[in-house]
Amino acid sequence: MKDLFSDNSLLYKQARPDYSDAILQEILKYSSGRALAWDCGAGSGQFSRWLAPYFQQVIATDLSAAQLAQAPKLANVSYCTAPAEVSPLLDGSADLITVAQAIHWFDFDAFYAEVRRVLKPNGCLAVIGYGLIEVENTTLNQLIQQLYFETLKGYWDAEHRYIDEMYQTIPFPFQEQTVSPLSLPYCWSSQQLLNYFNTWSGLKHYMKQHEYSPLHPLEQFFATQPMQTYQVQFPVLLRIGILG
């Protein structure tokens, strides 16, 4: 498992899209137990906090201690620095395992072995993510597409392709359930958008090799529309499986 997000962990917490009750409720349809949830690859606890009201205990793990340090302090949530493939959980202890915007970095075989060890019989695994941002403003959407697919081409880690493929090509050796299509809608300012782009791993790799920012065309566009806000949405990637 790679750690690409310890640097600027506060920006990651502030700039990344949040999840939603609709996502959680879709997952809870298939998770009958409410004793223990393991939020794996939890980062700054963005999904852990959604789980907390529904489970007696949530254990949130991540490879990055810097990310976990940004997570909210909740009475029933315990944070632990650990790789996805080696967790501190007991055998057959978890009712639900969630992975939010992280599974594409995992060693699939090793992680799924850990899932089978940790889940209770008929326990649930939910893999959550979000795809490329979509913007209502046509010109802005084209600039984002150009940045993502052209300027940053060759700068994305190989694992990032699983997001482009909407998580449909990751191995998923569980009893898969049918899920409803979902999206995450927002109204964001230009600064919120720029902050979000600055969390992209591809952009980080680009900046290490160049002395100028690939965000300049977007900054020029935003300069022509001061104080404007933009309707955006992220397509939700969601796969839910049951341990038979």
Rank of each mutant, 00 (worst) to 15 (best):
N198P: 00
I163Y: 08
H205E: 13
P226K: 06
N198F: 00
Q225A: 09
V135C: 14
Q228F: 03
P181N: 08
V135G: 03
M227A: 15
D164P: 00
E136R: 10
K153W: 08
M207N: 12
L215V: 01
H216C: 02
H210K: 10
S190H: 12
L184M: 10
L193I: 14
W156E: 02
E219G: 03
S201M: 04
W188A: 03
P217M: 02
K204Q: 12
S201F: 06
N141D: 14
G154H: 12
E150L: 09
N137R: 06
L140A: 01
Y167G: 01
Y206H: 11
W156T: 00
T139A: 13
I144P: 00
M207I: 07
W156K: 05
K204L: 01
Q177H: 07
L182T: 03
Y155C: 04
S189I: 04
I144H: 11
L143D: 04
L147V: 01
Q225R: 13
L184R: 12
V135W: 04
D157S: 10
L193N: 02
V135R: 10
T169N: 15
E150F: 09
D164H: 09
Y196K: 09
L215E: 06
P181L: 09
Q168L: 11
S180C: 12
Q142N: 12
L194R: 06
Q225K: 15
Q175F: 04
M227C: 12
Q142T: 05
M207L: 14
F221S: 02
Q142A: 13
P173C: 08
Q145A: 15
V179H: 09
G154N: 11
